[in-house]
Nucleic acid binder design. Sequence first.
DNA 1: GCTAGACTGTCGAGAACTCGACACTCGCAC
DNA 2: GTGCGAGTGTCGAGTTCTCGACAGTCTAGC
Lengths: 251, 251
Amino acid sequence: MQRPVPALQNSLLDALPPADLARFAQHIVQVELDRGRLLYDPGDQIDHIYFPHDGVISLMTLMENGQAIESTTIGPEGALGLMAAVAPRQSLSRAIVQTPLRAARISAERLHEAWERSATLRHLVDRHTEALYGHAIQSVACNALHSVEARFCRWLLTCHDRISTDTVALTQEFLADMLGVQRTTVTAVARSLQAKGVIRYRRGVVDIIDRAGLQALTCECYGVIRDTYQRLLGPAAGGLNGRGERWINGQ
Amino acid sequence: MQRPVPALQNSLLDALPPADLARFAQHIVQVELDRGRLLYDPGDQIDHIYFPHDGVISLMTLMENGQAIESTTIGPEGALGLMAAVAPRQSLSRAIVQTPLRAARISAERLHEAWERSATLRHLVDRHTEALYGHAIQSVACNALHSVEARFCRWLLTCHDRISTDTVALTQEFLADMLGVQRTTVTAVARSLQAKGVIRYRRGVVDIIDRAGLQALTCECYGVIRDTYQRLLGPAAGGLNGRGERWINGQ
DNA sequence: GCTAGACTGTCGAGAACTCGACACTCGCAC
DNA sequence: GTGCGAGTGTCGAGTTCTCGACAGTCTAGC
């Protein structure tokens, strides 16, 4: 089933007054990036900031042994590298495109100029930073306290909120990497969820069949993080519940 | 063994030009707070900002069932609630005093006024925010990937870096809460570490005997987080290695 | 000195996940 | 249609930690 295609919008850009947006609109480039695309690695200078319209970017923490795990994600409710609008800085994470991404991109320099002139933008950058921090600290707890199944469900729900279809292209290996678990554990959970009727999967693809069932199975972290984004960035922050709500009402 | 008593200093306050500091020094109150003191709960308005001179504040993520786990900590390299200097905000965590705390405290309003006038303070707030975020995302990975023993060692090292003695007053129950594990697991690890000669413990107290041994047993997260603070806030950020280094050289 | 409650020790069973490896499948590209 | 390599299925052994509960210890306060 194809969900209603949302307008190609990013919550932060949408929240800017038109006059503020006009100041830097000519510096914005629209990009489309394939799944798997590496945007930044730890230590890379953040020279561009991405405002997703659709799709998700995973921010991953890398280990010395090459292992990695997702710490937070960025979707249409936010922006990748936004703190670089305030001052030059280096990435702390590996940022990769998780699902096909359409985004507005602008150089950090240009956005810094806009930041200096727009109180609203400064406010949004500040709030987004806080939301991301809230996301991270909730994930600290989640990874320690919750089962792989709950986290698997959380991952799917978060992804679902930010894309325009019920179908997520992802391999079990990939999800195992994101969750920091073994691929065969993901296999076991996927089979269990399929048996419960909440998803259907085949090679490289997961279909979300029963979103409410997924929500019943996930941990509280899904809702806490969503609520944090909404409180700080408004109902449209969203990629999360704002859009989900429109869809539910329209169904 | 009593370590050299460090000057009662906070890295952020020390990094401010005297003229900037003078602007709000009369609004600073020195406080001493006992272990266990609750400073903020999630949702509380952050009305005061604490700059520890000595001691540690734990920031904990709370679960619905009352369970909790430490997401990050604040010591003399930083400040609790510092983002409230930028704009009014609510705490995302439960903040409790983990070891006896001596701190400089100032109202968020007053520090906001100073923030508006001091470019250095704005820079420090920005950098501290980033360091805290880096701390959190490393902890996301640590909690998922590393053993309780490694995390136990990390916890002790981090605490050791920020206090003036080799003796940490803490119960196994408390540490189990911080790490999000069962108390009996902490007992097992403590016994093992004692058998390895790196700590000695008795009821409610842990003595750090062999710091280098602890460092060999901990995970990479200890060093990564320490390096992030140093890179962003300078060598003195350091509750961490800066002070450790002085101590080692003086030995 | 004594007592009570907080703190640690101990335990067996169990759950959740890891490990490492190989077999099987399937979907895409030619 | 076909072949191949990526992706999933399966497996048994093992590890780490949880669970829940009770016994033993120790320290602070009276």
